[in-house]
């Protein structure tokens, strides 16, 4: 084994920050609480405060949206949050700078959520390198399915970023196996055929999908899209998921609050969800 191979193999043995986090939570028999916020909504300063508050209120992992003008996978709540963030002048670079400045204080893993175009525009290598420097642990790109993800996944791995892939209720079994085996950090299970947004009920088929995936994959499963309250978090925990991602419901609370109250509102909601997540 030459030097380079040795480095590579030792890398693959060492678990990533996300893997370590999920392992700990599993041991504690909890479910990872994963709130989503849109960076720059209403402005980056407030976003930074919200991130720290979410951490203080027990969030395990944060999903941080980088705003994009044409978010295909997002419903109206997150679309509007992205529009507000863009009007306040939020660029991908500024989001990463904000994150970099929080590096000392924000110790829980951060997964960046953005679309193909802003990412390509930055250059994949450049983006991953900057994101890793800023302390991010993973990357979710909802319009980059398996076929298009291979290149980014290896580039991300070089920067020790986990590229998380998504599985949908419409995904056929064989394809699901492939996605789960290539997804790094965890597998993102989309709970509905649809876009992000609040829903009053979770579909029973999520239970079925979690069980099915567990049969062939040891990757942690985080459920997202439509998880709107503490009841839903308990539900997916009962169904055996490893993480619950709460996006639109939180983003709505932030956008409905007056500027000064946004941080408190986010914190209060996170505390409520924490109780359900164990």
């Amino acid at each position: 084994m030459n030097f380079k191979q040795e480095i590579l193999s030792s890398d693959s043995i060492q678990p990533s920050k996300l893997e370590t986090c999920f392992a700990r939570i599993k041991k504690e028999e909890k479910i990872a609480l994963m709130p989503f916020i849109m960076a720059g909504d209403p402005d980056l300063n407030t976003s930074a405060q919200i991130l720290l508050r979410l951490q203080a209120e027990g969030a395990d992992i944060i999903e941080l949206g980088i705003p994009y003008s044409d978010p295909l996978a997002d419903g109206p709540i997150i679309q509007l949050a992205a529009s507000r963030a863009l009007s306040s002048g939020t660029s991908p670079k500024a989001v990463l700078e904000m994150l970099f400045n929080l590096k000392e204080k924000l110790t829980i893993p951060v997964v960046l959520f953005t679309y193909s175009n802003p990412l390509l525009n930055c250059g994949m290598e450049n983006f991953c390198c900057q994101a890793a420097k800023a302390g991010a642990s993973g990357l979710v790109v909802p319009d980059l399915p398996l076929e298009e993800a291979e290149k980014l996944s290896s580039i991300a791995a070089e920067s020790k970023l986990d590229l998380v892939l998504l599985v949908a209720p419409t995904t056929p079994l064989e394809r699901m196996k492939k996605i789960c085996s290539r997804s790094k950090g965890f597998t993102y299970l989309v709970s509905v055929t649809g876009v992000t947004g609040e829903r009053s009920n979770l579909e029973d088929r999520v239970n079925f999908l979690v069980q099915k995936i567990k049969q062939f994959s040891s990757n942690p499963i985080a459920v997202g899209f439509g998880i709107s309250d503490a009841k839903h978090v308990s539900q997916v925990r009962e169904w055996g998921a490893d993480g619950a991602i709460v996006g639109s419901a939180l983003v709505k609370r932030i956008s409905n609050a007056s500027d000064k109250k946004a941080v408190d509102e986010a914190g209060d909601f996170c505390r409520e969800l924490r109780k359900a997540a164990g």
């Binding site: 295909l72 909802p142 319009d143 399915p145 998504l166 419409t170 989309v190 649809g194």
Partner: peptide, 20 residues
């Protein structure tokens, strides 16, 4: 076969749509 015209084309859509 993967929907490319040179480097252009492809399928940059949410996973939900891929089977369709």
């Amino acid at each position: 076969s993967i929907g490319r015209f040179g480097r252009y084309g492809g399928q940059y859509v949410p996973e939900t749509l891929i089977p369709a």
